[in-house]
Structure formats: C-alpha cells, structure tokens
C-alpha cells in the first residue's frame, strides 16, 4: 500500500444513509486481545458504516472498553486488523496516523478534560495542535462548540473541577467535536446524566449525525439511548460480537443475555412507549 491510498477520505457532503452501497468507516477483522493468559476478545469482527449511530452493549467485564481502546490504538492486540477511515493504523506512518487522529473524536467515560485548562482552552487544544487559526477565530469556534453541545456560554472560562458531571460530559463532547471529526467514539455518554439531560444528549448526537454526517460509535447501557438514538446495536459477549442489528432484531433474538437485557423489566416499559409513538 502506498501513501496516497492510505490517506483517510475527506468529509464529503454525502447525506447519511445516502442509498447504495454503504461505506465502511471502521472495519475490524479477527481481532484478538488478551492480557497475560486471559483472552478478552477472540476473532472479533465488526463493521461501522458512515453516518450511522452504533450502540454497543454487553455485560460488565465483557471487554467493551478494551475493544474501544484497541480501536483507538491504546491497547495492543495480538492479532487481526483494524481499519479506521480506510487506514490500517498498524502499518501507517506518522503522517497518516495524524490525519486519522484529526478525523476522530473521543469522549472518555469520565470526560478526561485537562484539569489545568478551562473548558474553552480544553476545546482549543486539538485546534491549536493541528490547525493554524487566528486566536480570535479559535475563540469563536470554541464558543460555537460550547453552544452546539448545549452548555451555557459562562461555562467557557470555568475549570473542569467547577463543573457538574453532566456539564463535564458535554464539555468533553465539545472537545471531541473540536475538529469536526468524521467519527466520534462515546464511552457511556449518558451515564450519570438525569433522564432529561440524557434525552437531550441523545437528540444532540442525532442532530450532529444529521448535520455533520457524523458516525457515532457509542458504548452505552442506557436503554433509552439504544431505543431512541441508535440505528444499529451490537452486543458483545463470549469474546466476540454476539448479535448486531436494529432494535427489532434485538427484541427477536434468542440469545439469553440479549433476551434478558432487552426484554427485562426495565426494558419492557420503554419498549411499550417506543411502540406507541412509532
């Protein structure tokens, strides 16, 4: 593979689900990850298509976070290939890797905002690093992101330690979106938010997908999010993707864990509501 074909494709104006063959933005094939002699993921394969919101569920300790970290290159994998934006990061040089980094955004579970910087400065970190923007424009764009994620403007000069949990989530999302990425990874974005805030967050993710053509990979346990925001759901279990499909597929599935997850007491209520509104 030469360098020119390794370039990640640019953001074009294709509307999400624009018909025809859907473009694969993240492709994992036969990924195996183990720590010591404990295998966490074995021969896992997964496709994420451009412009979709993929919800990722699985019991505690099944390796959702490990997979996310492996995709992001924070964990080593024993075998398999992962292509992000059409680029295999294992064989990529520094330049292509940076180009991919610029087009991915990550929201870590606890926000991972830099505690020594204000919210505004946090959002500007990727801009400062990758783009040569005039300071005034950079301020405007950072404030735009603050507005976009539904934070009040007076949150900008605050430090992360002065923010509530929900605000930290939003500020972290604003930082993930700083460069208008093609794909964002969200690790439990609605955990710790009140139901109204969580619903707002789901709407926000959907709006961003519709406007920016964003692809969203969301690890979540929030059934509301899964029912209302996700186009497709993948279930992790037994070291691989057990099932993937729409919420209807999940409800039909015979897999015991999936059954108890989506047809349990807590799910039934939401299911009813979803059907009524549908």
């Amino acid at each position: 593979m030469d360098a020119s074909t390794q370039q990640p494709e640019q953001n074009n104006m294709t509307a999400p689900n624009g018909g025809g063959e859907r473009e694969v933005i993240l492709e994992a094939r036969d990924v195996t990850v183990s720590f010591g002699d404990k295998t966490i993921l074995e021969n896992l394969s997964l496709d994420v298509y451009r412009g979709e919101i993929l919800g990722f569920v699985g019991g505690s300790g099944t390796g959702k976070s490990v997979l996310l970290r492996t995709v992001l290159g924070l964990n080593k994998k024993q075998s398999g290939t992962i292509k992000l934006l059409g680029v295999d990061l294992d064989g990529a040089n520094e330049r292509t890797r940076m180009a991919v980094d610029m087009r991915t955004g990550v929201l870590f579970q606890h926000g991972a905002l830099f505690s020594a910087l204000t919210v505004l400065e946090n959002i500007q970190v990727p801009m400062r690093e990758y783009l040569d923007l005039p300071p005034k424009l950079m301020n405007e764009l950072a404030r735009l992101k603050i507005d976009l994620v539904g934070l009040p403007q007076d949150a900008g000069p605050k430090y992360p330690s002065e923010l509530s949990g929900g605000m930290i989530k939003r500020a972290a999302l604003a930082r993930a979106l700083a460069l208008d990425p093609a794909i964002v990874f969200l690790d439990e974005p609605t955990s710790g938010l009140d139901p109204i805030g969580a619903a707002d967050f789901d709407d926000l993710v959907k709006t961003l997908r519709d406007t920016l053509g964003l692809t969203v990979y969301m690890v979540t346990h929030d059934l509301d999010s899964l029912f209302s925001a996700c186009d497709r759901i993948a279930v992790l279990g037994k070291k691989r993707v057990l099932v993937d499909g729409t919420i209807e597929d999940m409800l039909k599935s015979d897999e015991p864990w999936v059954k108890s997850y989506f047809r349990g007491k807590r799910a039934r209520q939401i299911d009813l509501e979803a059907r009524e509104t549908a």
Binding site: L141, L144, D180, L212
Partner: peptide
C-alpha cells in the same frame, strides 16, 4: 464541503 466552522 461544509462543516460548523464554515457555517459559522
């Protein structure tokens, strides 16, 4: 191509 920065 167009994103929030251009729109802004």
């Amino acid at each position: 191509s167009f994103d929030t920065a251009g729109a802004w």
